[in-house]
Design a protein around this nucleic acid. Structure first.
Lengths: 211, 211
DNA sequence: GGTTACAAAATTACATACAAAACGTATACG
DNA sequence: CGTATACGTTTTGTATGTAATTTTGTAACC
């Protein structure tokens, strides 16, 4: 962690800040400013930014310069649709190979979600929600699927959703659906799992429309 | 296209060469060598390489340096599985919104495939195959889905498959399946389209195993 | 013959320097 | 008053230099 190159440190630092919403979408990232901020040379910053450009977390301005990628309404809807495809796909793989350990992890996340949302820890519950879906992806055993999921700006999507109060309006249904999905996987009831997941996304969809 | 920066030109040049298989997987890309080759400074090359690193087309060596990402057998199987998820998902979206123009494009690609494979143009037929699947993705109308598809090393996957003679062993079945899928979409018969697509992938799977 | 030690070459990581382009602003002019 | 333009500032794009690291070649040694 310490013997990383400057460029890598800058890369992970800036990346973290973007994904955690500390740098807002469409913000311009100036090489020199960050160089001074992180006390390293401009070229290392440039390298970090170029790499993030490749990842799609940044975009280039018309006349040069790097900007944090933002999500339009269209993007949000497309990502929702994509998430559904990926997560349903993951379900199909998961029911065939999931083990008890993984199931208990999912159960634990459901419990965490319940506890935090009941106690009003909104951000915490949101994190648990994200973790639930990511864990489900991991249970598919397909590492490409996971990395695709991560590269789909889905983190940005969550960051955007997480900021909406709507998210918690129906946390009880969210909770119930999560548990229903886990139960269906336990019983190898693929159809029920898929049906519940689709319903889960459908609700999310209407919530997004209210943004 | 002409007034792009040197770094961008290097980026697209190297990218093209990797995707078209002109640079083999696991090859080390040396800054200086490329700088001389393209007659531009090392920093521009470095920028291009860093961006490709972000895209996942390159990976870093343990002790620095950039290498063309290779595909292990495991990768190939994971990508196949991922492709199936993405393309089945695309089918669901496509049947609902596809128009006559798009259908005729698909028909044309099927014809191209038939002609080229009958005349022994192996590489051409392979290209048509790739185009068929990409076009199908595009018909989903979800641009994120398409970019995900492109970012999944699926081009590398094709490059690897394209090199195998096996690919053409059963081109008649491939052709028939393509046409069946288009027909099913035309009739809004989602189930048939999915079933055929799954079968299509299943065949591909056994072919890969023989590599 | 094979292994180790060590020097030489190659390569990368980073900083600096400078040119070019974009941006902002004040001033001249209609 | 508005617009154009000239000029200084900011920011990016590219090249080059240098130190540190890695790789390679080679010769001595067991």
């Amino acid at each position: 962690m310490k013997n990383d190159s400057f460029a890598k440190k800058a890369y992970s630092e800036i990346r973290k800040k973007i994904l955690s919403g500390q740098i807002l979408p469409n913000t311009r990232l100036k090489e020199d400013a960050w160089a001074q901020k992180l006390e390293i040379g401009r070229m290392s910053i440039r390298e970090a930014l170029t790499r993030l450009l490749g990842e799609g977390l940044l975009v280039e301005g018309e006349k040069g310069g790097y900007f944090v990628a933002g999500l339009t309404m269209e993007d949000v809807e497309e990502i929702r649709s994509l998430r559904q495809i990926l997560e349903i796909g993951a379900l199909e793989l998961s029911v065939q190979r999931i083990n008890d350990l993984e199931l208990s992890v999912l159960d634990q996340i459901c419990d965490d979600f319940t506890n935090m949302s009941q106690q009003g820890y909104l951000a915490g519950a949101c994190e648990a929600d994200i973790k639930f879906h990511e864990t489900l992806l991991e249970c598919s055993g397909n590492s490409k699927l996971i990395s695709i999921y991560r590269m789909s700006h889905i983190p940005l999507f969550h960051a955007k959703l997480g900021k909406t109060a709507i998210f918690m309006d129906d946390y009880k249904e969210t909770d119930a659906e999560h548990r229903m999905i886990v139960k269906a996987i336990k019983n190898k009831d693929l159809n029920l799992a898929k049906k519940t997941m689709i319903q889960h996304f459908k609700r999310g969809s209407t919530a997004v429309l209210d943004l």
